[in-house]
Design a protein around this nucleic acid. Structure first.
Lengths: 172, 172
DNA sequence: CTAATATGAATGAAGG
DNA sequence: CCTTCATTCATATTAG
């Protein structure tokens, strides 16, 4: 198969500035491929408790991500939506596995369950439980960053202190 | 796009000595490798017309496959998902090629894929289309099997019946 | 050992 | 929100 690790051609998505991929030198990426920095930011926000950012917040997040590569509001929205779904699914799966492992009811279902071990390329510890960052003040979700450039950027927000407060995100 | 998350052993072996080489590199931590019997079952189901089994059916299929080796709902779901995609992809490829050959435009303005070689020694005809087996009765998809143990097992399915037709899986 | 292929798994995007 | 499609990544297996 064709394996492309480094892609330096982000399709001008976002539906704003960038135009159609008329570049003949660009392998034209069909869909958006979030950069590591962008993923870091998105994960930070998600882990901060903002699992369902409102429209206002989504736009701001997009602005931040744009610094590291072309991205649109829709991409951000999709990302959070998929992230939420996957998180919930993961949680349910883990819960079901744990429960099944401890079941042993001995009624009629004698189906033994093998050890649950979902292999993960990256140690994805989904610990988004109990988000205490539910303050309707400044949405500075970053504090546990790890990237260099990302952190540098995160320390210099666009002077926008407008917070939309979002304990329970509700997009319309 | 994981629908059901139920993964068991990463190596995908029923708990016996794996056929993995004596390499000291990763003997474990692999992806699920469906056993021939499992593949037979899955193919039978797929060819039976159940190309998109609902959740209930997926669980049941997983139970059947578990008899032949560790497998999770997710694996079954992935299998069907990939099967569908690949079938469609295959058809589109062939169709495109045929159309291109019949067009006789004399201009190769059509650019598809990057490096998709289509020099296949055998005609990869899935011939799985136009399945008129659209009856919402018992889901006894097996009838044209060839395996020994598999067939033996297939003749003793669980008393669970009432599946979702399989014509058009639409649940939500 | 390296290249190519087959296939399971992950993710972005879209529909309902 | 949940399900589904299409694309891509990663790895196992096979060919050279």
């Amino acid at each position: 198969m064709d394996q492309e690790g480094s892609s330096q051609s982000p399709t001008g998505h976002g539906g704003l500035s960038s135009s159609v991929p008329s570049n003949s030198t660009e392998p034209v990426r069909s869909r958006w491929s979030p950069k590591p920095e962008q993923i870091l930011i998105l994960e930070s926000i998600f882990n901060s408790g903002i699992v369902n950012p409102p429209k206002d917040e989504t736009v701001r997040i997009r602005k931040m991500l744009e610094k590291f590569g072309a991205v649109g509001d829709a991409n951000v929205f999709y990302w959070f939506q998929n992230r939420r779904s996957r998180s919930r699914r993961r949680q349910r799966q883990l819960q079901a596995a744990t429960a099944a492992a401890a079941t042993t009811k001995g009624a009629e279902d004698y189906q033994h369950m093998t050890t649950m071990s979902m292999h993960h390329p990256y140690s994805n510890s989904e610990s988004d439980l109990g988000f205490g960052s539910c303050s309707n003040s400044s949405p500075n979700y970053f504090f546990n960053d790890s990237l260099s450039q990302a952190s540098s950027f995160l320390l210099s927000p666009p002077s926008s202190s407008s917070s939309s407060g979002g304990c329970e995100s509700n997009n319309g």
